[in-house]
Design a protein around this nucleic acid. Sequence first.
DNA 1: TATTATATACAAACATGAATGTATGTAAAT
DNA 2: ATTTACATACATTCATGTTTGTATATAATA
Lengths: 208, 208
Amino acid sequence: MVRKTKEDAAITRQRIIDAAREMFLQKGVSRTSLEQIATHASVTRGAVYWHFQNKAELFHAMREEVYLPLIDRMDDTLLGNADESTIDPLGRIRKHLASTIQILDNDQTTRATYEVMMTKCEYVDEFADVLKSILSNCSGLVHKLEQAYAKAQEIGQVGTQLSAAELAMDTHLFFSGLLHMWVKDTEGTLFRDRALQLIDTHINLRKK
Amino acid sequence: MVRKTKEDAAITRQRIIDAAREMFLQKGVSRTSLEQIATHASVTRGAVYWHFQNKAELFHAMREEVYLPLIDRMDDTLLGNADESTIDPLGRIRKHLASTIQILDNDQTTRATYEVMMTKCEYVDEFADVLKSILSNCSGLVHKLEQAYAKAQEIGQVGTQLSAAELAMDTHLFFSGLLHMWVKDTEGTLFRDRALQLIDTHINLRKK
DNA sequence: TATTATATACAAACATGAATGTATGTAAAT
DNA sequence: ATTTACATACATTCATGTTTGTATATAATA
């Protein structure tokens, strides 16, 4: 039974991505062979090489599957439409951070992908520009945060002399750290349960 | 010319560690072969296997070379002796964070090691417990920060209702994020020059 | 509509290279 | 005389990329 229909092929492709994610999580990207991925997906390396040029392309496919949705979410949660943006911008920031954590908490796929990206991957050669992509994406997030903080200052929600840009960067660094710790704390004893509370603390620190 | 003196052997060992660090930085831990490390250190794999059991042990040796000094530094910079600790604890925290960044800035070896550990290593199998070590070390740092913040509150240096524990955790997450970004920003355009300023911002946010 | 042609979605086989660990050899320090 | 501090040689395993084979879905044609 070869030559499946287009839908079947799409399913196969997705199963390969799923298998890759699981194997990457178990053994790390480098130590996972395409043979292992294929076996785990109940296909042969032939199928893998048909759908992806090599391991790097497969990695990128896995990454974009969760990366793109998160970016899309950013504008909605963080800024909203023109009317909404003036209502409780500080609360919006809090909500955005909290909902990101909640996605990690609820969605095993997203969580696994983040864990792979943060602790089971070496950013060299073909993977090096992923880091650049992450960094440039950070700039975007900081910019959005800055806008939100600016609104918060306008309506007098913030109780500090610091600029919106400074507040935004501090929040971004805080959240980067939180994400890293949250993901690395696989036992869940140090950060998993306290993340939302830590976000509240961080926001409260700048409330009037 | 074989069988060097003990000092020569120690030198050889150090050169292997240095070579490993440089190769890890270039190609990542997984993609660096012991042969490449040996060649880069102008020895053969025989020498490498003589000094280290395998790549993992070599990695640990590289790591501890910069990891241990940083831990030692913590008590001094952050808490100091009993007399000093009551003088400007907030400034001490700031100084501790700033000096850590400065070490990264000045010491190429430390910087390279951190870059390897954060972006060129997969924490699986033999490397998995390194993460645990990092996490448990974080707990230690947070505890020290908490003590410092408690002092700061005692002498009325802090202008917020939040507890010392909350402030400490927020600072720790901020600094984790900063370290990650700083190290990943190899171009130096986004964080390298602004790190000290970002630390000041973070500290100012909790000043009375 | 039935037939044919072609591209698709893989499986299987092949060829190559590279990394690891170990075992052995050896010259000099102790 | 015996370790020490390596270099050299050997054996094995494993991952990758490519090539070839093939059954079938799908498009083309008549």
